[in-house]
Design a protein around this nucleic acid. Sequence first.
DNA 1: TTCATAGTTAGATGCTAACCGAACTATCAA
DNA 2: TTGATAGTTCGGTTAGCATCTAACTATGAA
Lengths: 226, 226
Amino acid sequence: MKAGTDLAQIASLVGDPARANMLAALMGGAALTASELALEAGVTLPTASAHLSKLTGGGLLRMARQGRHRYYALADHQVAGMLESIMGVAATLGPKKVLPGPRDNAMREARICYDHLAGEMGVAMFDAFAARGLLAVNGSEIALTESGCGFFEDFGLDLAAMRGKRRPICRACLDWSVRRSHLAGSLGAALLDRFVALNWVRREKDSRIIRFTPPGRRSFALMLRD
Amino acid sequence: MKAGTDLAQIASLVGDPARANMLAALMGGAALTASELALEAGVTLPTASAHLSKLTGGGLLRMARQGRHRYYALADHQVAGMLESIMGVAATLGPKKVLPGPRDNAMREARICYDHLAGEMGVAMFDAFAARGLLAVNGSEIALTESGCGFFEDFGLDLAAMRGKRRPICRACLDWSVRRSHLAGSLGAALLDRFVALNWVRREKDSRIIRFTPPGRRSFALMLRD
DNA sequence: TTCATAGTTAGATGCTAACCGAACTATCAA
DNA sequence: TTGATAGTTCGGTTAGCATCTAACTATGAA
């Protein structure tokens, strides 16, 4: 009985269409202002404000003031993971897909999950790193190996900076489309940043879709191979 | 905007206290009748009936008639996993725990997750199997190794029967208390059945808690070791 | 058949919560 | 100061939904 109460409390926060739209928008990883989220949810500012205070009060969001703006973001990875898992259920259950549609396919191939790469490309990357011994995978405990350290530093990542943070460097995140793990944690986030900086990928405006540029796709494949 | 709608639809199903209690009860793995679930949720039969038709209609539950009873169960593992992940968020967010409490600790040590063993003991078992090469773990893709086949058959499991079914033999399931993977799939379910048959463990009445008998605990530790 | 139990359907009720407009506060920019 | 933008708070309205009782259907047992 107690377990059900906790469950309902969190789920009902997500269960309102306006709030769900806000959360879905925040799955893009960027922090958004109250006004932007109001727009996203299709409600007026006062309504959005009420929703946002519920979400922050419930611990799903965190807020940072900046001047006269208030930026909202998902509280942590656990919340992002929960949302992904709900979306996963929704995706398999909603058999309303007459045909998948090109946007759907793009989402399956590569998308942003909070702040790291997910979808088939994300899973492929994770598998390749594991196979090459750059990551030591044991259950869902993942660690950087020595050769992994060298590889990622060569690739231009600042591992020292990551170690300073409280956030774990490596984490596994379960993919709703592929149902396999991909790489999250600060390493996952840094890799995606780097891909963007190298112009390998481009984020589609106002969506979670990530598109590989043609040269980016080649370089990415090369990186996984050798 | 579309993603949010799907999200809200599923989450709102879980977001009602009565329904959440039913789902929590079904996390125990057993199929329950409408009356039992009504009792569990603390509502009258008609109310429960309405909830149950929503849950089945929404794809979270499946129902089987049996004489004049109707047995309800979670639709699949994905739904169970989603519920676990919501519970995980609830557990870390709800800092209302003044002190953990003995029942809480028992849940953390060993509990049933749909139909297999979860909690610290579940994670320990998974790790031990992986370390001994009985399971080949690659990301969240898990396979039985040759030595694993021998081991589990010696332990009294009927692997041939499992292969016949559509359900995957091995699957990883993320643990909300320990945040590590443990073994799900038909192998995970069969192991738990076997533990019960061997009297190593006993399910606590009306809860998800699994208690190891003293000899069971010894035998279990031995099994992990050699 | 007749009775009992399991469950659904229908109808009525009442509460909660989402929503908006209007007024208020806070920050920035002249 | 004055004006503009960002956001919150307040009050009132509305709609949806969970809930119950009562009546109905279906299955099994005597």
